[in-house]
Amino acid sequence: MSASRFRISSRLSAASALLPAFLVMGVVYIGSTSWTVWMSLTSSRMLPSNAFVGLRQYEILFSNDRWLTSVHNLVVFGLMFVLASLAVGFLLAVAIDQKVRAEDTLRSVFLYPYAMSFVVTGLVWQWLLNPTHGIQKLVRGKPDTVIYCLVIAGVWHAAGLVMAIMLAGLRGIDEDIWKAARVDGLPAWRVYVSIVVPMLGASFATAGVLLSTSVVRLYDLSVSMTNGGPGISSEVPAKFVMDHLFERANIGLATAAATTMLITVVSVVAPYMYWRVRKAGVR
Protein backbone atom coordinates (compact mmCIF):
# COMPACT_ATOMS: atom_id res chain seq x y z
CA MET A 1 0.00 0.00 0.00
CA SER A 2 2.47 2.53 1.14
CA ALA A 3 4.92 1.43 -1.50
CA SER A 4 2.52 2.13 -4.39
CA ARG A 5 1.58 5.53 -2.94
CA PHE A 6 5.23 6.29 -2.74
CA ARG A 7 5.62 5.31 -6.38
CA ILE A 8 2.76 7.58 -7.47
CA SER A 9 4.05 10.54 -5.52
CA SER A 10 7.56 10.05 -6.82
CA ARG A 11 6.27 9.88 -10.35
CA LEU A 12 4.21 12.97 -9.71
CA SER A 13 7.15 14.89 -8.36
CA ALA A 14 9.27 13.77 -11.26
CA ALA A 15 6.60 14.94 -13.70
CA SER A 16 6.17 18.24 -11.93
CA ALA A 17 9.91 18.77 -11.95
CA LEU A 18 9.98 18.20 -15.67
CA LEU A 19 6.88 20.29 -16.35
CA PRO A 20 8.70 23.63 -16.75
CA ALA A 21 11.09 22.04 -19.21
CA PHE A 22 8.19 20.56 -21.17
CA LEU A 23 6.40 23.91 -21.13
CA VAL A 24 9.47 25.72 -22.39
CA MET A 25 9.93 23.04 -25.02
CA GLY A 26 6.28 23.18 -26.07
CA VAL A 27 5.82 26.94 -26.11
CA VAL A 28 9.24 28.20 -27.11
CA TYR A 29 10.39 25.55 -29.54
CA ILE A 30 7.36 23.80 -30.97
CA GLY A 31 4.95 26.73 -30.51
CA SER A 32 7.20 29.40 -31.99
CA THR A 33 8.37 27.16 -34.77
CA SER A 34 4.83 26.28 -35.85
CA TRP A 35 3.85 29.93 -35.65
CA THR A 36 6.82 30.84 -37.85
CA VAL A 37 5.82 28.23 -40.40
CA TRP A 38 2.24 29.48 -40.37
CA MET A 39 3.34 33.10 -40.79
CA SER A 40 5.37 32.13 -43.84
CA LEU A 41 2.12 31.10 -45.53
CA THR A 42 0.48 34.47 -44.94
CA SER A 43 0.88 37.93 -46.43
CA SER A 44 2.08 39.41 -43.09
CA ARG A 45 4.01 42.66 -43.38
CA MET A 46 4.73 44.81 -40.36
CA LEU A 47 2.19 43.07 -38.10
CA PRO A 48 1.25 39.40 -38.18
CA SER A 49 -1.89 38.72 -40.15
CA ASN A 50 -3.64 35.49 -40.95
CA ALA A 51 -4.35 36.20 -44.62
CA PHE A 52 -3.39 32.90 -46.23
CA VAL A 53 -1.45 33.20 -49.51
CA GLY A 54 -0.15 29.66 -49.92
CA LEU A 55 3.44 29.40 -51.09
CA ARG A 56 3.62 32.89 -52.60
CA GLN A 57 6.27 34.06 -50.13
CA TYR A 58 8.42 31.09 -51.12
CA GLU A 59 8.00 31.97 -54.79
CA ILE A 60 9.18 35.50 -54.05
CA LEU A 61 11.98 34.16 -51.87
CA PHE A 62 13.40 31.88 -54.53
CA SER A 63 13.27 34.56 -57.21
CA ASN A 64 15.15 36.93 -54.89
CA ASP A 65 18.81 37.38 -55.91
CA ARG A 66 19.83 38.32 -52.42
CA TRP A 67 18.39 35.11 -50.96
CA LEU A 68 20.00 32.94 -53.60
CA THR A 69 23.35 34.66 -53.04
CA SER A 70 22.91 34.17 -49.30
CA VAL A 71 22.34 30.44 -49.67
CA HIS A 72 25.28 30.10 -52.04
CA ASN A 73 27.49 32.02 -49.62
CA LEU A 74 26.43 29.84 -46.73
CA VAL A 75 27.37 26.69 -48.60
CA VAL A 76 30.76 28.09 -49.64
CA PHE A 77 31.44 29.54 -46.22
CA GLY A 78 30.22 26.42 -44.42
CA LEU A 79 32.37 23.96 -46.31
CA MET A 80 35.52 26.06 -46.31
CA PHE A 81 35.14 27.29 -42.76
CA VAL A 82 34.55 23.86 -41.22
CA LEU A 83 37.29 22.11 -43.19
CA ALA A 84 39.86 24.87 -42.76
CA SER A 85 39.12 25.29 -39.06
CA LEU A 86 39.49 21.56 -38.46
CA ALA A 87 42.73 21.42 -40.43
CA VAL A 88 44.30 24.51 -38.87
CA GLY A 89 43.09 23.60 -35.40
CA PHE A 90 44.45 20.06 -35.69
CA LEU A 91 47.82 21.23 -36.97
CA LEU A 92 48.09 23.77 -34.16
CA ALA A 93 47.26 21.07 -31.64
CA VAL A 94 49.88 18.75 -33.11
CA ALA A 95 52.45 21.53 -33.06
CA ILE A 96 51.74 22.37 -29.46
CA ASP A 97 51.77 18.71 -28.52
CA GLN A 98 55.48 18.48 -29.44
CA LYS A 99 56.34 19.47 -25.85
CA VAL A 100 57.23 22.98 -26.97
CA ARG A 101 58.43 25.62 -24.58
CA ALA A 102 55.86 28.13 -23.23
CA GLU A 103 53.03 25.84 -24.15
CA ASP A 104 50.58 27.51 -21.78
CA THR A 105 51.22 30.92 -23.30
CA LEU A 106 50.89 29.67 -26.85
CA ARG A 107 47.70 27.84 -25.99
CA SER A 108 46.20 31.04 -24.62
CA VAL A 109 47.35 32.99 -27.65
CA PHE A 110 45.70 30.60 -30.09
CA LEU A 111 42.54 30.26 -28.04
CA TYR A 112 42.28 33.99 -27.49
CA PRO A 113 40.40 34.88 -30.70
CA TYR A 114 37.60 32.56 -29.64
CA ALA A 115 37.05 34.66 -26.55
CA MET A 116 36.11 37.55 -28.78
CA SER A 117 32.71 37.90 -30.34
CA PHE A 118 32.26 37.65 -34.08
CA VAL A 119 31.48 41.37 -34.07
CA VAL A 120 34.97 42.22 -32.84
CA THR A 121 36.51 39.64 -35.16
CA GLY A 122 34.66 41.15 -38.11
CA LEU A 123 35.77 44.65 -37.25
CA VAL A 124 39.41 43.66 -36.78
CA TRP A 125 39.52 41.91 -40.14
CA GLN A 126 37.65 44.75 -41.80
CA TRP A 127 40.53 46.99 -40.78
CA LEU A 128 43.20 44.47 -41.65
CA LEU A 129 41.81 43.98 -45.14
CA ASN A 130 40.91 47.60 -45.82
CA PRO A 131 41.99 48.28 -49.42
CA THR A 132 43.27 51.80 -48.78
CA HIS A 133 45.19 51.32 -45.56
CA GLY A 134 45.17 47.63 -44.76
CA ILE A 135 46.85 44.65 -46.33
CA GLN A 136 46.46 46.26 -49.72
CA LYS A 137 46.73 43.21 -51.92
CA LEU A 138 43.90 41.37 -50.24
CA VAL A 139 40.54 41.34 -51.62
CA ARG A 140 37.95 43.19 -49.64
CA GLY A 141 35.97 45.44 -51.90
CA LYS A 142 35.72 42.86 -54.64
CA PRO A 143 32.33 41.20 -54.73
CA ASP A 144 33.52 37.83 -56.05
CA THR A 145 36.13 37.21 -53.38
CA VAL A 146 34.60 38.76 -50.30
CA ILE A 147 33.14 35.52 -48.96
CA TYR A 148 36.63 34.03 -48.72
CA CYS A 149 37.63 36.93 -46.51
CA LEU A 150 34.79 36.00 -44.22
CA VAL A 151 36.18 32.47 -44.16
CA ILE A 152 39.64 33.76 -43.19
CA ALA A 153 38.19 35.77 -40.32
CA GLY A 154 36.01 32.85 -39.25
CA VAL A 155 38.90 30.39 -39.25
CA TRP A 156 41.07 32.80 -37.30
CA HIS A 157 38.28 32.97 -34.77
CA ALA A 158 37.44 29.28 -34.48
CA ALA A 159 40.76 27.47 -35.00
CA GLY A 160 41.79 27.99 -31.37
CA LEU A 161 38.73 26.19 -30.11
CA VAL A 162 39.37 23.27 -32.42
CA MET A 163 42.95 23.23 -31.22
CA ALA A 164 41.85 22.97 -27.58
CA ILE A 165 39.51 20.08 -28.35
CA MET A 166 42.14 18.28 -30.42
CA LEU A 167 44.82 18.84 -27.82
CA ALA A 168 42.63 17.21 -25.19
CA GLY A 169 42.18 14.29 -27.59
CA LEU A 170 45.90 14.02 -28.31
CA ARG A 171 46.73 14.00 -24.62
CA GLY A 172 44.29 11.13 -24.18
CA ILE A 173 46.23 8.92 -26.56
CA ASP A 174 48.22 6.23 -24.83
CA GLU A 175 51.99 6.78 -24.78
CA ASP A 176 52.37 3.06 -25.51
CA ILE A 177 50.98 3.54 -28.99
CA TRP A 178 53.77 5.99 -29.74
CA LYS A 179 56.32 3.60 -28.30
CA ALA A 180 54.94 0.73 -30.36
CA ALA A 181 55.06 2.87 -33.50
CA ARG A 182 58.63 3.81 -32.78
CA VAL A 183 59.56 0.16 -32.39
CA ASP A 184 57.92 -0.48 -35.76
CA GLY A 185 59.97 2.37 -37.22
CA LEU A 186 56.98 4.37 -38.47
CA PRO A 187 57.61 8.03 -39.33
CA ALA A 188 55.71 10.49 -37.15
CA TRP A 189 53.45 11.80 -39.92
CA ARG A 190 52.37 8.25 -40.69
CA VAL A 191 51.42 7.67 -37.05
CA TYR A 192 49.33 10.85 -37.10
CA VAL A 193 47.55 10.04 -40.35
CA SER A 194 46.94 6.33 -39.85
CA ILE A 195 46.59 5.98 -36.09
CA VAL A 196 46.05 9.26 -34.29
CA VAL A 197 43.50 10.87 -36.61
CA PRO A 198 41.21 7.80 -36.60
CA MET A 199 41.49 7.66 -32.83
CA LEU A 200 40.47 11.31 -32.59
CA GLY A 201 37.17 10.64 -34.36
CA ALA A 202 35.13 11.81 -31.38
CA SER A 203 37.12 15.05 -31.11
CA PHE A 204 36.62 15.73 -34.81
CA ALA A 205 32.90 15.08 -34.46
CA THR A 206 32.57 17.42 -31.48
CA ALA A 207 34.49 20.19 -33.20
CA GLY A 208 32.56 19.61 -36.42
CA VAL A 209 29.19 19.94 -34.71
CA LEU A 210 30.25 23.08 -32.86
CA LEU A 211 31.54 24.66 -36.08
CA SER A 212 28.45 23.66 -38.05
CA THR A 213 26.10 25.37 -35.63
CA SER A 214 28.08 28.57 -35.96
CA VAL A 215 27.79 28.27 -39.73
CA VAL A 216 24.00 28.06 -39.68
CA ARG A 217 23.62 31.02 -37.37
CA LEU A 218 26.31 33.04 -39.17
CA TYR A 219 25.12 36.62 -38.91
CA ASP A 220 27.27 38.87 -36.79
CA LEU A 221 30.47 38.28 -38.74
CA SER A 222 28.83 39.33 -41.98
CA VAL A 223 27.16 42.32 -40.33
CA SER A 224 30.27 43.67 -38.67
CA MET A 225 32.78 42.90 -41.39
CA THR A 226 30.97 43.88 -44.56
CA ASN A 227 27.30 44.37 -43.66
CA GLY A 228 26.49 42.03 -46.51
CA GLY A 229 28.40 44.11 -49.04
CA PRO A 230 29.75 45.04 -51.46
CA GLY A 231 26.30 44.92 -52.91
CA ILE A 232 24.75 41.66 -51.81
CA SER A 233 27.89 39.60 -52.22
CA SER A 234 28.42 38.62 -48.59
CA GLU A 235 24.82 38.29 -47.49
CA VAL A 236 23.90 35.24 -45.43
CA PRO A 237 20.50 33.63 -44.72
CA ALA A 238 20.28 34.62 -41.05
CA LYS A 239 20.89 38.24 -42.01
CA PHE A 240 18.20 38.02 -44.66
CA VAL A 241 15.74 36.89 -41.99
CA MET A 242 16.75 39.55 -39.48
CA ASP A 243 16.66 42.39 -41.98
CA HIS A 244 13.28 41.46 -43.36
CA LEU A 245 11.80 40.78 -39.94
CA PHE A 246 12.84 44.02 -38.29
CA GLU A 247 14.18 46.64 -40.65
CA ARG A 248 11.92 45.91 -43.59
CA ALA A 249 8.73 44.98 -41.80
CA ASN A 250 8.14 41.97 -44.02
CA ILE A 251 7.23 39.16 -41.64
CA GLY A 252 5.89 36.87 -44.36
CA LEU A 253 9.11 36.82 -46.36
CA ALA A 254 11.33 36.66 -43.27
CA THR A 255 9.48 33.65 -41.87
CA ALA A 256 9.54 31.94 -45.27
CA ALA A 257 13.32 32.30 -45.24
CA ALA A 258 13.53 31.08 -41.64
CA THR A 259 11.35 28.08 -42.46
CA THR A 260 13.53 27.23 -45.44
CA MET A 261 16.58 27.32 -43.16
CA LEU A 262 14.82 25.04 -40.69
CA ILE A 263 13.84 22.54 -43.36
CA THR A 264 17.38 22.46 -44.67
CA VAL A 265 18.90 21.85 -41.26
CA VAL A 266 16.29 19.22 -40.38
CA SER A 267 16.83 17.39 -43.65
CA VAL A 268 20.54 17.18 -42.87
CA VAL A 269 20.24 16.35 -39.19
CA ALA A 270 17.27 13.97 -39.29
CA PRO A 271 18.95 11.15 -41.26
CA TYR A 272 21.98 11.44 -38.99
CA MET A 273 19.84 11.17 -35.84
CA TYR A 274 17.94 8.23 -37.35
CA TRP A 275 21.21 6.50 -38.13
CA ARG A 276 22.50 7.02 -34.61
CA VAL A 277 19.32 5.75 -32.99
CA ARG A 278 19.36 2.67 -35.19
CA LYS A 279 22.98 2.03 -34.45
CA ALA A 280 22.33 2.31 -30.72
CA GLY A 281 19.29 0.03 -31.04
CA VAL A 282 21.26 -2.68 -32.81
CA ARG A 283 23.90 -2.62 -30.16
Binding site: M46, D65, R66, P230, D243, H244, E247, R248, A249, N250
Partner: peptide, 12 residues
Amino acid sequence: PAMNGALEDIYS
Protein backbone atom coordinates in the same frame (compact mmCIF):
# COMPACT_ATOMS: atom_id res chain seq x y z
CA PRO B 1 10.07 49.60 -45.80
CA ALA B 2 9.58 46.23 -47.50
CA MET B 3 9.55 47.87 -50.94
CA ASN B 4 12.34 50.33 -50.20
CA GLY B 5 14.45 47.49 -48.86
CA ALA B 6 13.87 45.32 -51.90
CA LEU B 7 14.79 48.23 -54.20
CA GLU B 8 17.82 49.03 -52.08
CA ASP B 9 19.12 45.48 -52.60
CA ILE B 10 18.77 45.92 -56.35
CA TYR B 11 20.41 49.35 -56.52
CA SER B 12 23.25 48.03 -54.39
